[in-house]
Simulated scan of single mutants.
Amino acid sequence: MVSADISMESQTPAPEERQASTTGAMRWTVHVEVRLKPRASSRFETIRNLVYSYVTSYERLVLPSTLSGWEDIPELLSSVERISVCEAQCPTASLKMEEMVIQAHVYQPSDDDAFEEFSNSSGSRGEDDDTMAASVCELPNRNYEGLWDSLIYAGDIKMKLLDYIHATLVLSDANVDFEEEDGFVVVLIDEVESLTAARAGAMAGTEPSDGLRVVNALLTQLDKLKTRKNVLIMATSNLVKAIDSAFVDRADIIQYVDLPSREAIYEILRTCLCEMILKGIVASVTIPTLKQVQMYELVSKVNGRSDASDGQERSRSIGLRLLALASQCRGMSGRALRRLPVLALARYIGLGNVGLAPGPSSSSAPPAAGRTSPSVSVGIWLDGMEKAVDEQAKEAEHLT
């Protein structure tokens, strides 16, 4: 369970945003994240208004993208680290300004990586249980940066959750209780079935009565938390049928997350490969995006050939091979997919072929004395990945 304390500013739209949303034309909500410097002391609302004025000076925005040019504004230069255009539900890669409703979110991440852990230990002799029951971490936190982007799902699951959370914040702000706590608390219960096992089994005598009391107590506390406008509860489970129906009834959103689709797997493998390239483990090469490789696949089926240049042809070939690998990985979880590069490196690429990388900025420099080549070709990496996938499939057969 994770509790997060977040310093919040009102998310009420600026007058320009309200006017833009009442013209009757279809507009897409576009979220813009503004990360402040650690010691910045400017008011969030001041920064937000400056960013809004700057962003709306664009004729078109690419989704997603990192903006530049705001450094020419002294107030932003002294306080802001980065301005990023993030999620939007629109199906296109860019939007004209008149097609958007901008929502600017200003945040100042914490540099403190300390967090509290709470165990089940009661302190009484002979009954100590050192199993960790919960951890508490202040958010936003730099240690978690990039984690959201690494979550890849089919469809619009991420946007659906973001929109719901944003809507609850707007509704809470509309009826603010000034005696309420300042923080926004997120409670995440992992493997919630361990706390909410169906009470039918306990009533039938197949489960201990303690389990029944735990579920009753949890449901009671959840009902009390409904009066708190600054608390969001999220839960995950791999055993949905084991969860008590009364707990399920209390959920505003029930989202089923299936195993990754071929397209989602491609994006996961692509991000893994790009990370390997960034760290200097794999030699630099351009990896096509999902939309690009889908176009390559379509052209290949229709024409059977490509009129691309040598560099484009190499990128196309790599993308199609990675897409074929994604098809082989159907049925694997995201966690298993992200283990594949390590397995490939350990078993098939060979640790002796990969030395300590000098880093992407100096990848063209010769390796230092005593080091082997700092990177392998993408072809060797793909060979190792394909063999690792075959091995995983064979091992899975023994478990079924």
Rank of each mutant, 00 (worst) to 15 (best):
M1Y: 07
M1K: 03
Q11W: 06
T12Q: 11
P15M: 06
E16M: 06
R18Q: 15
A20G: 03
V34W: 06
K37G: 01
P38D: 02
S41W: 08
S53V: 02
S53N: 10
V55C: 00
T56C: 01
S57Q: 11
Y58F: 15
V62D: 09
S65G: 02
W70D: 04
P74I: 03
S78E: 12
V80C: 12
V80N: 14
I83G: 02
P91D: 12
T92E: 07
T92R: 09
K96V: 02
Q103Y: 08
A104N: 11
H105P: 04
D111W: 14
E116Y: 14
E138L: 09
L139T: 07
N141M: 07
W148P: 04
L151S: 01
L161N: 01
L162Q: 00
L169G: 01
F184N: 01
V186A: 06
E191D: 15
S194Y: 03
R199T: 12
A200V: 15
A202H: 08
M203W: 03
L212P: 02
V214S: 12
V214E: 08
L218V: 14
T220V: 03
Q221C: 07
K226R: 12
L232R: 00
M234R: 00
M234E: 02
T236Q: 00
L239F: 06
K241H: 14
A242F: 06
S245I: 12
A246H: 05
D252G: 05
I254Y: 07
D258E: 07
Y266W: 08
Y266M: 05
E267R: 13
I268F: 05
R270Y: 06
L273E: 04
I277A: 00
S284F: 13
M295E: 15
Y296V: 10
S300G: 14
N303G: 13
S306Q: 08
G319F: 15
R321H: 09
L322A: 14
L322W: 13
C329R: 04
A336P: 00
R347M: 12
L351Q: 04
L356K: 05
A357D: 02
P358V: 12
S361L: 14
S362T: 13
S362K: 10
A365S: 06
P366A: 10
R371N: 12
T372W: 03
Q392V: 13
H398W: 05
L399V: 12
T400N: 08
